[in-house]
Every structure is written in C-alpha cells, then in structure tokens.
Design a protein around this nucleic acid. Structure first.
Lengths: 211, 211, 211, 211
DNA sequence: TATGAATGAGATTTCATTCAT
DNA sequence: AATGAATGAAATCTCATTCAT
C-alpha cells in the first residue's frame, strides 16, 4: 500500500464531499484498509490533508517557475504561465480544488504555511504582469483585477474540463491564452504555437478521473 | 428573533468554516439562542441551508432577468448581465459562496431542485451569448468556454472585493464589462455608462461584512 | 439526576479500578445515563475528576481549620487535627484515596491547582507541630519525618477501616491520637475525651460503602 | 537488551503515570525497541506487571525473613523488620509503589497469587507482634491498628525519601525504629545500633532515581 | 532478534435531533 | 417562544496484540 494511493482516495472524497464531511473510516474503506491502519501511513486526518496540499502547491510552484523561465519576454512568459495554470488545473482538477478550498480546515499553523506557498505561486503571475506593464507590453484597466480574473478563470477549469470532452486540452489552453491576451490588449492573440504548450504532469494525489 | 438573523449567522459560519464543519449549537450561540430553539425557526440543518441557497438563487434569477430586459441588443444585454453578476457577488459575497459550493451537502432531492435554479440562471447568460453570436455581435474561439470563464471570473469577485478597497464597486463592474467585451471581440469596450449600471441589493441572508 | 450521584459513581469506579482504567461509558451505565448525557452534567472526564478532588480537598481544609481552632494549645490542636484526619479518611475513604493518587492523571494546570490545595492542608499540621516544638510541648527526632509518618498513617486508614468492623470510629480516632502523642513524646496519651472528638461528615462524592 | 532494563522502564512509567495510562508503545520508545519486539521479552502488558510485582514481593519476603532471623527477641526482631521495610521502600521506591497499588490492574487469577505473597510478607510482622505481646514486651491499644499504622508509615517513605535529602537512610531507619518502639511502649527507643541496620539491595526492576 | 504492517475493539467526545416542560 | 435533559449514532484516534518477514 502506497501513500499515493491513500492520497488519491482522500482527494477523491474531499473533492466530492468536502474534508469535514469525509470520515476517516470512509477513506479506509475506499482503499481497503482498516481505519486504524491509515494512521500507520498518515499521522491523522489533518496531516493527510496537509501532505496533499503541500505536494500540490509545490508542484505548481516548480512547474510554473520552470515553464516561465522558457519565455523570452513578458508576453510569452505570461502566455506560458496561463497555459501551465490551465494545464495543471485540467490535469489535476480534484487535487487543485481540494488544495484551494480546504485550506480553511487546517489549523492556524498549517494554514499559514500553506498560504505562504500559495502566495509564492501567485507572485509568479504578479511579477510577470508587472514587468510586462512596465515595458508597455500590456495594457489593462486594473492590473490587480486582471490577474485575479485570469487566475480564477483558470481555476474554474477544474469544474468542467473533461479529458474526453468537446475540446482537447491544448485547445483549451490556447483558448485561455487568447482570452488572456485580449484582456491585456496584446495584439498577437496567439504568441504560442501548439507545440510550445507546456505538457502538464499528473501528480501523485490525483485520482483516476472516474473516481 | 427573525429568520434573516439566523440565516446571516449561518452564512457567516458556513462561508468561513463550511457547512459540515459548523455545528448547530455553534449557530445557536452565535444568535443567542438555545440549539433546541433553532428548530422553531428552521426545521433542521439542511432546511436552513436549503432556505439560504433558494433565496439566493431566486434573487439572482429575478435580478438578472429584470436587468437583462433593460438591454436593447445582445451586447448591452450581456454587459448588463456581467455587471449584475459582479455586483450581486460583490454585494453578497458570503451568501454567494455558500450557495455555490455547499450544494454538495444537500440530499439528492434538494440538490436537484437547487441545481435546476442554478441552471436557469446560467441559461440567461447562455441565451444572450447565443443570440449575440447568431447576430454576429460576438466573436470568440469557443462560446462555452467564454461563458464559463466569464462566470467564474465574476464569481471569484467574492474572494477579494472589499467595500472599502482600492476600487469602488462601479469601477470593478466596468472593468469586468470591459474584460468581457474584449473576450468577445466587441469593439466598444464600454457599452454602459456608469449611471446605467445595475445597483445590487443586499439579500436577507448576507451578514455584515465584518462577521 | 444530581451531580453528586454522578460523582459517587465515579469515585466508586476510580477508587476500585483507577481513573485511567475507568471508561466514561462504564460511568454512564453505573448511573443509568447515556454516555453522551454525562457531558451535560460534567464537562469531560478530567473535569469530573477535578470537581471531585477540589470538593474533597476544600472539605478537608475547612474541616481541619475549624477543628483545630477549637484547641487551646498545640497539643490539643494536634490531637484534634489527627482525630479529624483519621475521621475524615475513615468516613470518606474512597474519595480520599481518589483525591490522593489520581492527581497524576490531571493536566499540568489542574494538577498545580490541586497541589496548592493539598499543600494548604498539610501546612495546617506543619504549623501546629512547629508551634508545639517551639513551646517545648513536643519532642521527636525529626519533625518533618514525624509529620509525614503521622499523615501517612492516617491516610492508610482508608484501606482497612470498616464501619461495622471490630473497632468503632471513635476508638480508632483515640488510638491514633495516642500513637501520635507517643511519637511526639507527649506524656498525656489522651488529651481528648471521647466526647470531644470531631464528628466527620460524609461529603457529596463519597459513595455508599457497599458500592 | 536485558529483561531488567525493560522492567526498569516499565516501573518508571507505571510509577509516574500508572499502569492503565501507560502504553506499550511508550515503553518500547523508552527502551529503544519496537513495540512488537517487547513481546519477545515479556509476553504482554500484564505479564510484564506480574513479573515486576512477583520479583518485588519475593525480594521483600526473602529479605525480611533473613533479617528477622538475626534478631534474638521480639523487640529486636521487630526493630529489624521495621528497619528492613523502611530500607527496602526507600531503596526501591518506584517498584514498591507499583507493587502496592497496581495490583488492581491484574486479572483475578494473577491478583490472587500476588495477594498471597503480600499476605506472607505482612504475616512476618504480625507474627512478631503477637509473639512480643504474648511475652509482654509490647503494649499498645490495638495490635492490628499498630501493625497497619507501622506498615503504612514505612510504605509512605517511598513518597518522600531522597538519597541526597536532608536525612541519610540509616538516620531515617533509626527514626522509624524509634517511632515504632514508642508506639509499642517499649522503653528502649534504640534497640539497634547503626551498624546493625540491614543494608537494603536495589532490585532489578528499580530504575535510576532520576528516571 | 527485530520490525513494519495490520486490525478489532474500544477510548473520549461531539453531533443533530427530539421532547417534556 | 424557549430550554434543559436526553440519546443514538458517529466522529477521530489509540490500544494491545499478532504475524509475515
């Protein structure tokens, strides 16, 4: 029995019913383990959640950092970030959702640590937007609103994207890049070709889509 | 003791801690009532939540319908809808959030009823988008994505808007209208003047911002 | 259902099996209450124990203070204290035992509070012994040892005294007074007549002897 | 890894927190062993306790028998027994305490066996007291009470004696002998010289004082 | 000799809810 | 309108113990 398996079951339940509404026995049943045995693998319900969120946010930070580094100018950097964000969210929808709105279930201490990670991630976007604005590449009414709107839009992908849906992931990514470019009044709507899109990875805690 | 007061306390707790993590005794304490007394006002924990969500969605549907009716063409209709959505969400942030993601806590039956209401609301947007596209007023990669992105963006407002923040509500509304127009390749970014913006109402279940 | 009844059941169990080995369900059964209902009366297992110990020690302090005040000189004061201590212990044997050696089960905070009370009680004896020694009324090898031995002796009564045993309580009290007098080299072995003995009270938490 | 080491750790925990409140994993940690490994050395939690108590009581019986045998008359025999009892208790305070009041944690069967051993030990004192009384060497109000008081007094030593305290062990022993002599109205308060005092041994299960 | 994995039973405590008053 | 008392069910977590390795 691997930790990832337990995390997958947990994410599956947490995403559907919520952390507080999910019992630890339920999780045990889901992975075929006695509830007491779960405590062998994870120290407790909160530790389990912390582990999931921490892994998720670290993957996001690492992935976004590396992706953005490949962009030569702010416009391309931002396009890559948007594509990454959408890609990650679409590829790890349940983990993303759990990482986003079960932070309130954490104790003060853990919540602070996780919030710091999330802030790091959002800073990656904020910095590129600032750089681009400073260089005159972007133009928008309010920079803060644009950033928030863009991130929220991408995050929302987790609610509706289906791997076998009408649009493929690259199509969705390109669509969002185009929306972002318009929001920032960039003339070239397609700074990225399809082959340049970052290819997202499935992280350990993401359950099979059917779960 | 009025029902609205109880709902406000409930929304305050549900928005912060979540429905499942909020105890009925906690709510009693919050409004200065014995937990048993709450059962005089609300039939139970789920009924309380249902009442809140139903009121909220009905207000949204009514408000959006009336607002959109005032628009002469699809472009103005959509602008009004976006402004309304942002306005409602910013004015009733906690109730909106609860209505959005505590639906999973409902029993199958209640969940279906509420989902039907939400679908009605989203249909208002979908119809205008379709009309406008048919008339050649809008142009975008994918209509479904554009709609989802627009709604998600607006919903996200509940997470960060503050009445005493850097931007006033009308400013935020106009900003979002502009973003939407760009997303749909409408040439006129400002189809609405500030005086034409719908003025949102605070609904009964929305607690004071400080709560 | 009264608090005293719950305390009696608790003391009965704690004295026999120990605090840690006694389940809260067991207590519920003993008083004919659902385990959840117990939390209506006592806030928790530890609060229950704290309540018992606090009552017991306060009764001891009050009783001993008042009793000693009736003695004119150190010799009579000490005789009265010994008689009181033996009387209290014999009358409330189970509560005494619980109050004595389940203090280790308390949290640091509660333990400190209770220890302070116990110290107050022991000070009553220490002060009289010092006064008597200063006045030349007592003579013994080591004052500290004499005090500890005397108290331990009296406490031990809880292990063997039976109300219907070979010796009546006044007889036991007089016996212990005599032992104490000898230990302190007081010439008069019987400074108290039988009618002067303090008559101990049964405190609320002490269960019926048969329990 | 030796059995004695495990017993020492166990006694240390049992004396401090009590048998029921001490986990077997806790013991494992204390001796640097996996909890499963403990089952190689001791058959289980109760067997561990039984082993400790049995060793302790056997040491007491053997030591007291041999010590008493060296006394020529009841007075000296009793003085030696008191000195031994105090010495043993002061030298093995934690094991003594555990052996005394964790017997209640044993199953009926084991409890009966251990009680039989304890009875043997107490009989050693009872017999000497009877002999001495028959010979007119002792005089006291009630023989049973005197015996119980004497033993309790000695047992209490485990609560306060410190090897580096104000009084050395021989001093304490002589003090208690004197108290006992007075309690029995023996004219010679010091039937034993300091060199005649029994020198107690540290038994295998007694942990280092600092533990 | 030593251990990680596993578990059934049971620990304390909280929950939403009902009901007599 | 309001509440204290009561409860069955379920929550999280710990326990002593076993067993394959």
């Amino acid at each position: 029995m691997e930790l990832g398996t337990v995390q997958q079951a947990a994410v599956s339940c947490f995403a559907q019913r919520g952390f507080a509404a999910t019992g630890i026995r339920e999780l045990g049943t889901a992975v075929g383990l006695n509830s007491a045995t779960l405590y062998h693998y994870v120290g407790g319900k909160e530790e389990l959640l912390v582990g999931i969120i921490k892994n998720c946010l670290n993957s996001m930070i690492d992935g976004a950092s590396q992706t953005a580094a490949a962009g030569a100018d702010p416009t391309r950097k931002l396009a890559l970030l948007v594509a990454f964000h959408v890609g990650f969210t679409a590829t790890n929808p349940k983990t993303s959702r759990v990482a986003e709105h079960e932070m309130r279930a954490l104790s003060t201490e853990n919540a602070a640590q996780m919030q710091a990670l999330r802030d790091s991630y959002e800073q990656l976007f904020a910095r590129v937007l600032q750089d681009g604005t400073a260089q005159g590449a972007f133009s928008t009414g309010d920079l803060g609103i644009a950033r928030l709107a863009m991130m929220e839009m991408g995050t929302g992908v987790s609610h509706w994207f289906r791997r076998d849906g009408r649009l493929s992931l690259p199509e969705v990514q390109l669509n969002f890049v185009a929306l972002a470019m318009r929001m920032l009044a960039v003339s070239n709507e397609s700074p990225l070709s399809r082959t340049e899109l970052p290819i997202p990875l499935v992280i350990a805690s993401e359950p099979e889509p059917k779960d």
